[in-house]
Write a protein that binds this DNA or RNA. Structure first.
Lengths: 117, 117
DNA sequence: CCACATTACTTCATCTGTCAAAGTAATATG
DNA sequence: CATATTACTTTGACAGATGAAGTAATGTGG
């Protein structure tokens, strides 16, 4: 599993992916990490380092906020919540993806000399 | 036009896009540059610097070869031709894109709380 | 005839996102 | 009690994309 698809094909979608998970409710790093592997049918693993660096950026940009969970006993968990701006950003990115997908299809399969298009 | 879609959404597909153009016949830098803008309906411009750096890489990797055109008068043109390995690479990348597209759709729109999926 | 747009190619420094690696620390399990 | 798993963090390195600057020839409108 994981690493099945080139990371460069995902690049630029990381933020949208994280925001999409958070749209479904507050969550913390490790859970989001697992959720993404799950959503991708074990075909893509967003590495932890990437995930946590993205959190920093998202928080700095005001697209998410964070708070520590109140686990009295044991493992601390830092929860993330999507903001209004985050939701807007998600909607934008989603639309952008729909457009990019079509363009990419055209660029990758367009003008096919084998007539498969 | 151009720059409409984020470059990070295209990243990783540059090579596939170039190989796809060359599958349709030998071509030279500037023509390929124009062709990509054209194929994308003026929505995406692969910058010249990106294109030419990609040529270097592709040639080093044996996916394309190059030769100077015999324009006796004026503007020199360096033509590129796709190799057997290049064609194989294209087929691979194309398949990888098909897979990545589905996974990305799932990751970006999956588990939608608005029930749009 | 000349200024400017366009064709055509090149190089280099910089930026950004991704990730390997290494680490800390607690809990669960056999 | 050793090992796996959960959970979070930081840092350095790398690769691909691009801005910017440059060279040079040809075409074109005035």
């Amino acid at each position: 599993m994981s690493g099945k698809i080139s990371t460069d094909l995902i690049r630029g979608n990381t933020v949208t992916i994280i925001l999409n998970v958070l749209r479904q409710g507050d969550s913390y790093g490790y859970e989001i990490y697992k959720r993404i592997i799950d959503l991708s049918d074990q075909q893509y693993e967003l590495k932890e380092a990437t995930l946590y660096t993205a959190f920093r950026r998202l928080e700095k940009d005001g697209l998410i906020t964070s708070y520590w969970g109140d686990e009295t006993q044991g493992g601390r968990r830092k929860y993330y919540r999507i903001t209004e701006n985050g939701i807007e950003k998600y909607e934008e990115n989603r639309k952008e993806w729909e457009v990019a997908k079509d363009i990419l299809n055209q660029l990758i399969t367009g003008g096919d000399p084998d007539g498969r298009e």
